[in-house]
Design a protein around this nucleic acid. Structure first.
Lengths: 205, 205
DNA sequence: GGACACATGTAACGGGTTACATGATTTC
DNA sequence: GAAATCATGTAACCCGTTACATGTGTCC
């Protein structure tokens, strides 16, 4: 019925199940927490996926009752583990970034200075919340409070990545905000300034 | 018929048309070039959008003939310009990143060292090609060869952003590759190492 | 004469989102 | 007793992708 080719989202969930069994609700929350920044998905979506995994024999479902409230707990099967390992051996798809804020910077000369600065502020806010998130996660593990001590090494990797990327973006946005605020208007380029920015950027490359 | 709410993709195209009139084919290529890294879209998609813009009165279409070969040239209308300005004044949606490579790092402990390193290499390659792209773009403008001199300032901004982000990612990936290659296996965490990585990352935050 | 770039699409499919629905339990 | 959160979905919609189609001009 609802059978379908497994997607990356399916494997993301399978990966979570490889860590431990999860109830769907719990798992959905966890996905929001851990995948929000590089594999974002709507919560409602996550209720269909584990059923497909069960159908494919990669996971087992078990009903639990808490009073009159039902919860479905999923766990990975041996077949699931090996399917996940196979997927990990597969070449990853290229990264995909969608950023309206970048778009607004690119076309910033068609709008007002306030618009452009608002876009830069969004960029900075996004970046700051990313840094925050990964710093919190990393801090928990650093204090020995991470929920999965056996995952401390991969989590350290992810935290340092999230922080590095977030910081680079936040720093840039803050810098750019300062620069743009000194522009006369958005339409007329200060060529000397632009040339210097380009030179500096390319040197870094 | 094919009328529909305008999407961010529509506005991206409208933004291009605000720069100059484009033939569809040319425009599709340009979109690949300039939006590939932060608003990627399949080429075939880009042939439908300008028709919607025309339908909405935001653009005009003109047929041109080059021998027996037809090309449709679109240009923005006054209404289009003002609609685009309105859109620029709108708060940008949060950034959205989809990265299978990140996912594979997060679950790297379920796979082999080779898998993990392959993911890191993908990350590094993505980042390097991003740096490359923006360095080329920036270099053209720096040499006064940019196709749109009146856009040098926003292009400088975008180039420096692209390079900064790409470099941050590439540097991290290179570093991580070196670290992981010294791991015993992916399963057993070296807690001392992880703690140090976390401490360093959080200090940076 | 063949390959390749130019130029413009169409058809089918599908993963994902938004919005809504529903009832139970815990908390204040 | 109300509000929040637990817990699990469904229905409709749609933007976008993949894959394919088709003919022309140009270059070697």
């Amino acid at each position: 019925m609802s059978s379908r080719q497994l997607t990356t989202t399916s494997y993301a969930i399978l990966g979570l199940l490889a860590v431990k069994p999860w109830a769907t609700y719990e798992m959905a929350k966890q996905l929001q927490r851990s995948l929000h920044f590089f594999w974002p998905r709507a919560e409602s979506n996550l209720y269909a996926e584990p059923k497909r995994l069960v159908e494919a024999g990669l996971a087992d479902a078990r009903e639990e009752w808490n009073g009159d409230r039902r919860r479905t707990v999923y766990s990975i099967t041996e077949k699931g583990r090996s399917a996940f390992r196979d997927w990990l051996a597969t070449p990853p798809a290229p990264q995909r970034v969608e950023s309206e804020a970048h778009l607004r910077v690119l076309f910033g000369n068609s709008g007002t200075k306030a618009d452009l600065i608002a876009a830069l502020e969004r960029l900075e806010a996004d970046a700051a919340s990313q840094v925050d998130h990964f710093a919190t996660l990393g801090g928990d593990y650093a204090r020995g409070e991470g929920p999965f001590p056996e995952r401390i090494h991969v989590n350290a990797l992810i935290a340092s990545l999230g922080i590095a990327q977030g910081r680079a973006l936040a720093d840039w946005a803050r810098w750019a905000k300062g620069e743009v605020s000194e522009w006369g208007d958005t339409r007329t380029p200060d060529v000397g300034w632009a040339l210097k920015v380009l030179k500096d950027a390319i040197e870094d490359a």
